[in-house]
């Protein structure tokens, strides 16, 4: 995964990663309107506004020009750090770059599903009432899990994709080469895992992957991944659990 050649002379390494990111979807282009709403949110959930990085999504706005600098200033006043802009016209993209922000293309059709639920979650996070619900669920995990867990019976075949957008995914059967299983939470495969398994797709680093037989093409937890080639051959073909520990994936045989 790292591109370094001589480890003694390395200043940095590039690593692929998916980080949890709050998307602030703007429904208004008026900085003062945004300021009023932010002020209200700040008093309700001060814990959320801790220099939180946000991506400003302007896809729902139909404006070719935007007072982007003022909107960013309003955000910073409320301890939100805009790091990038998503969508919008060419002038908006240019002004994002001029302000030192990144720019993301608008959400494509195919990816919309996943990203939609990401933004749903972040909306929840901003809404203090919803935040409490999440905490309640954490305290009462078994009940909350069963509500969002998806159970799939049978073989997940090459070319098929099975996902649990909100919770865990349990597969009673094998996941074959060329198949893909995804979950916001953990992935449990009661069979051989030969395809790709991506747990914690919204950034939940606590998620894990459990399988009866590891032969996976790729395993990923919260965006950190290992390919089949990176996996210690001793761990192949045996029951294992995979977790995100100390910034990397740890694969352990299931005792």
């Amino acid at each position: 995964m790292s591109l370094n050649v001589d480890s003694a002379d390395v200043a940095f390494t590039f690593k692929g990663g998916m980080l949890p990111m709050t998307v602030m979807e703007l429904a208004s282009a008026d900085p003062e309107h945004i300021r009023r709403q932010l002020a209200g949110k700040l008093s309700q959930a001060p814990a959320f506004f801790q220099h939180t990085p946000v991506v400003l999504s302007v896809e729902k706005l139909d404006e070719p020009h935007l007072a982007l600098e003022r909107i960013c200033a309003v955000c910073r006043d409320h301890k939100l750090l805009p790091v990038a802009v998503r969508g919008g016209s060419e002038p908006i993209r240019q002004s994002a770059w001029a302000l030192g922000l990144g720019w993301f293309p608008p959400v494509e059709e195919g990816r919309a599903r996943i990203l939609e639920s990401v933004s749903e979650r972040t909306n929840d996070a901003v809404d203090p009432a919803a935040t409490e619900v999440v905490e309640e669920r954490a305290a009462d995990a078994p009940v909350a899990l069963s509500e969002t867990t998806r159970l799939y019976r049978g073989t997940v075949r090459s070319g098929q994709q099975v996902s649990a957008a909100e919770g865990d995914l349990v597969v009673i059967g094998a996941v074959n080469a060329g198949a893909e299983v995804l979950a916001a939470g953990s992935i449990h495969v009661y069979g051989a895992l030969r395809g790709r398994a991506l747990a914690g797709i919204h950034g939940n680093a606590q998620a894990g992957i459990y399988c009866r037989e590891l032969e996976a093409e790729l395993i990923s937890v919260a965006g950190t991944y290992k390919r089949l080639e990176d996996i210690d051959p001793k761990l192949l073909g045996v029951p294992v659990e995979v977790h995100f520990v100390k910034e990397q994936l740890e694969i352990k045989p299931l005792a």
Binding site: T155, S158, G159, A177
Partner: peptide
């Protein structure tokens, strides 16, 4: 075998 697996997936969908 992989292509057959793919076909089995299509047969069920």
């Amino acid at each position: 075998v992989r292509d057959s697996d793919r076909i089995l997936g299509l047969l069920s969908s």
